[in-house]
């Protein structure tokens, strides 16, 4: 506006005309735009709320992952795992809020708002699952835990889905691509876990991890370029992580053979034994 006025008096005419028009608020165009304004604001507000929840989910999930990395250093693993489980339960409640916001909406419309959080959650939950079961959590297992029962049955539209009157079931579906991207991030955590477990003298875990990572890597190679664009980017990082783990295994194998047989047996019995022998050999 200012710039235009600065260009000379030539615009006076147009400005006057505009003032006239803005004065008449009853014009159908302005009335229509007032409706658009509301609609856009509602949409943007919802989007921003989702971004906020997503950020909370990310933060809590990251904390859970850090907590899980401590598993290797503490004597009582079960306690840590329980704490992690508790934290993830909190995250699931937050995802419930996302589901609440998305009730009756097209989840793809707002997908970009919450996808970072969901990926981080997948990463955390699959990390916990791996530590517990040494296997990859499936998409179905993740989704099975994202089912929410709401006591207050407010919306008549949604209550049709609920089995019991008054209580309604709300589900959140992690999309396969979010799952894939979460799993891709998981590999980075597994690499870190592998390296730290070498430091702790745990010889079993690195080999297990490298095998597991290789399986995941093969899986991603199988998917290749057909997946979403981000997958191919993460595949590169995955390859690097795998390389690091394989190098660690190689080093362990080579150096492991230098440890005398009877000491190697000790090594497998307890971690502290390895720490001692490691010092002895090196």
């Amino acid at each position: 506006m200012k710039k235009r006025e600065g260009e000379g008096s030539s615009r006076k005419n147009g400005d006057a005309a505009r003032e006239q028009d803005t004065g008449s608020c009853s014009s159908p165009v302005v009335a229509a735009f007032k409706v658009f304004q509301q609609e856009l604001d509602t949409k943007h507000d919802k989007y921003e709320r989702l971004v906020k929840i997503s950020r909370d989910i990310t933060i809590e999930s990251k904390r859970t992952i850090f907590l899980l990395h401590r598993v290797a250093n503490v004597p009582n693993t079960e306690e840590v795992l329980k704490e992690a489980e508790l934290k993830l339960e909190g995250v699931r409640q937050k995802i419930g809020q996302v589901a609440e916001e998305l009730r009756g909406e097209d989840i793809h419309q707002f997908h970009r708002a919450f996808t970072p959080g969901i990926q981080e959650y997948v990463e955390a939950v699959s990390f916990l699952h791996y530590i517990r079961h040494r296997s990859l959590i499936s998409l179905e297992e993740i989704n099975a835990r994202l089912v929410y029962m709401r006591a207050e049955g407010g919306d008549p539209k949604a209550s049709a889905e609920g089995p019991a009157p008054g209580a309604q079931v709300l589900t959140f579906h992690v999309t396969p691509s979010d799952y894939l991207l979460g799993v891709a991030d998981l590999t980075g955590e597994l690499m870190r876990m592998c390296i730290s477990s070498v430091g702790n003298g745990d010889i079993d875990t690195p080999f297990q991890l490298s095998q597991f990572l290789r399986q995941i890597h093969d899986g991603f190679s199988y998917i290749g370029n057909t997946g979403p664009y981000e997958v191919s980017k993460k595949l590169h990082t995955l390859r690097q992580s795998l390389g690091k783990v394989e190098d660690a295994c190689y080093a362990l194998h080579v150096r492991g053979s230098e440890i005398p047989k009877h000491m190697l047996a000790d090594v497998f019995c307890s971690r502290t034994a390895l720490l001692d022998s490691d010092e002895g050999v090196a």
Partner: peptide
């Protein structure tokens, strides 16, 4: 893991 990936 393989089954999972082929599913996806």
């Amino acid at each position: 893991v393989t089954e999972m990936f082929s599913h996806i």
